[in-house]
Nucleic acid binder design. Structure first.
Length: 199
DNA sequence: GAGACGATAAACT
DNA sequence: GTTTATCGTCTCT
């Protein structure tokens, strides 16, 4: 148990990630991701289920060097590069051999503002304009930059690794909305799955 | 506040 | 050699 100001935080155990991917994606909303001294709150997630999801890298249980992480037991960290310049942070779910994950699409910064701001814009948080603050970590590539996440964290553990996920038991997360996923028109029918969650 | 568009490198075939 | 799918910048309202 960790005390963060007045909040009492409990670390999520492996069981949390071994459940249905859609449940994990929904319940990750409002949880806290802690890396070193940096803390962010999850505001948007998206589920990826390899077996039935054409947008998933491991669709059809396709095993390649990159997708190998998705086949690991739930609770692993999956990081991949997109557009040749941005990283995306995912949490692997379900049992070993079932390639599913939850993509973290958006977070809000809680602790370590200046450190994150330096990673993101190379300047203190106070010097950011309102546009930069608004777009600080509201996208998968942005939050990775703010948290200094790169491929070296791929395949690491959420249970005993550098990245940990906590929940605040006193906090009720309400108004979780669902929606279609984004930027995956190529996935045909899978693009209409209501697998995106946000507040 | 919202829409258009180009940048870029790794994974894969 | 082909595919991939976000961010920053610019533009207009």
């Amino acid at each position: 148990m960790t005390f963060l100001g007045v909040m009492v935080m409990d670390k999520l155990d492996r069981e949390f990630f071994l459940r249905d991917t859609l449940i994990v994606a929904k319940e990750l909303i409002g949880k806290y991701i802690i890396k070193e001294e940096l803390i962010v709150r999850v505001t948007e997630t998206e589920a990826y289920i390899g077996d039935i999801d054409k947008a998933c890298h491991a669709y059809g249980r396709k095993r390649t060097n990159r997708t190998e992480t998705l086949f690991m037991e739930g609770g692993a960290v999956y990081v991949y590069l997109i557009y040749g310049m941005y990283y995306c942070l995912n949490f692997v779910t379900e049992e070993e051999g079932n390639p599913c994950a939850v993509l973290i699409r958006g977070v809000e910064p809680i602790e370590g503002l200046d450190t994150m701001s330096n990673y993101r814009y190379s300047k203190p948080y106070e010097q950011l304009n309102s546009y930069q603050k608004k777009n600080f970590s509201n996208g998968p590539g942005k939050l990775c930059k703010a948290l200094n996440i790169d491929k070296s964290l791929d395949k690491t553990s959420l249970i005993n690794g550098e990245i940990n996920v906590f929940e605040n038991k006193d906090e009720k997360v309400e108004n979780i909305k669902t929606g279609k996923r984004i930027n995956i028109d190529y996935a045909e029918e899978a693009k209409d799955f209501l697998w995106r969650y946000y507040v």
